[in-house]
Design a protein around this nucleic acid. Sequence first.
RNA 1: GCGCCGGUAGCUCAGUCGGACAGAGCAUCGGAUUUCUAAUCCGAAAGUCGCAGGUUCGAGUCCUGCCCGGCGCGCCA
Length: 600
Amino acid sequence: MNSIRNQIAQRVREATRRIGAEGDPLVRPAQDEKFGDYQSNCAMGLAKRLGKKPRDVATAIVDALEIEDMCEKPDIAGPGFINFKLKPEYLAGCLESIPAPSEAGGDRLGISPAANPQVIVLDISSPNLAKEMHVGHLRSTVIGDCLARVLEFEGHTVHRENHVGDWGTQFGMLVAHLRRVDPDVVRHPEELVISDLESFYVDAKSRFDTDDEFKTESRETVVALQQGDETTRRIWRAFCDESLRHCHAIYDRLDVKLVDRGESFYADRMEDVIRRLESMTTAGDKGLVRISDGALCVFMEGFKTREGDPLPMIVRKSDGGYNYATSDLATILHRVEELGASRILYVVGIGQKQHFDMLFAAVRALGWAKDDASLLHIGFGNMLAASGKPFKTREGGTVKLKDLLDEAVQRAREVVSPPDDDQPGERDRQFDKAQVAQIAETVGLAAMKYFDLSHSLSSDYKFDLGTMLSLEGNTAPYMLYAYARIRSIGRKAGVEFDDLPRSEEILLEHPAEIALAKRLLQFAEVLDDLSRELRPNVMTDYLYSLAKAFSRFYDKKLGVRVIDASPEDVRLSRLHLCELTARTLKLGLSLLGIKTLEEM
RNA sequence: GCGCCGGUAGCUCAGUCGGACAGAGCAUCGGAUUUCUAAUCCGAAAGUCGCAGGUUCGAGUCCUGCCCGGCGCGCCA
């Protein structure tokens, strides 16, 4: 379905052509209701180019407009704004054309997929398998999953790549340590259980730092690992599998699906990267690829060190080892050449911006990606503690992501449980323990995700359980409540939302009905914005405004009766609006990776 | 020193490729309740958009300089 904004823009474009001009129609939602629903800001700019008065241009455009089917006659205001007010009949027609849940396209509210589907790779989460996932992995995982869902919904082929750290010197140490504490691991690798990866790492590290013999053994183990020694490999694989089980316990809870492709997957491809670069190496100090201080480097324009010297991207260290840049180059070759990606998105903290700038510049300079392929770093700010300082335990250590999820769920349980001194009549619904636990799990995780996604990407935000679990304001509990309440309306009204009589008209008379209808129909344009700008808070802001519009629609004073409305066609129309609201909320939340509840 | 991100109401944050008198939530104050889930809704008060210039018909938004906070800047990832 083409969004209403696009349709108005199309009409304005046609009108400007008719008066012999050309330009972006600049159609936006009106900033203030009193101006109407949409506005076009193109007359001012056009007037300048045509050497005419802005209001005259606006008048000419309005006279040339053919839009009576959608809007009242547009107003001209201020310096030359053209204001559009949608007709209720038009809104009703749009809503009626949204397919029912059981009809084709009903699961996507009739929104058609992108005309030009692409293959898109998202680099998401990517924890280091040597340790437990910590709070720093939350944002990439949640934001990346959301963007993946949105792009998938748009019809693109999406690869969700979890580029885990499973390779490198520290794995020699870990394998050597594991061999000592669990000699049996070679025979029964599948039975390996490490209850606390963090302390396992700490133990290994302290042995490494204090025991020279162990240090030597660790280094030999790295070599054995890289040379493909079978026993070493098996122990290493057992360790990585166990660590991945820890990760996926969290991903499962978060309802995030990822394809694990660790550094080790790229080991051969890194060799290939080096071979390609070596063939491009030039002597002297001018070329793109050259040896500098013993390291194989790519030098691009525009990157400087602290001292002002050229800053290279090092792809092979002077000791012969590979680093981040090497594997990132290898991933790009894999993604472009083998996965056929035309867009690669890196959902990684904003602190790594320079690394990605260099990486992309190198890929362009090397000619390793087609010119029309898009490489984009989606950087995000840090999650800080409520104090505004980096998130740490009292002892100064990193906070495990699992612990944070548990805490959020625990706090959610307190919020959703009825108070101990249960006052009769306060709530008409009773939940048993299992239901409360399930509701708390959904609400707690939703609250964390929603809070994260509702902030703009680039800025840091303060983690605040009280705010994110508040039942008021732009929070997950408010959204989930709004949804559950609507589902309850359906049950109480004795109708099946999935099977409402579709022949009924939608009647829009009351201001609250019209306002809700407009919000519902904005979903398509919000999706356009979201998929273009890749900013999840575009969706959270919209969903909040929709839930708010529904609360007004349903309000005793300012809204309308629904369940007991009469006559019957009015009642069915209003129930239909409820049904559409519930579906829009559910779809919008699902694109954020958030599950809904039928009751809470 | 250079680069990046941030500085908007008491607090937490939005602000769409420059557009109308700067928005929301929390907190504060006031109002609505024989409840269609009030876990809600309505209203009030609250801001020199870090500072100073500039571009523009129009700047929170673009440009320049400066101040404050955070992060990065050759072999970690």
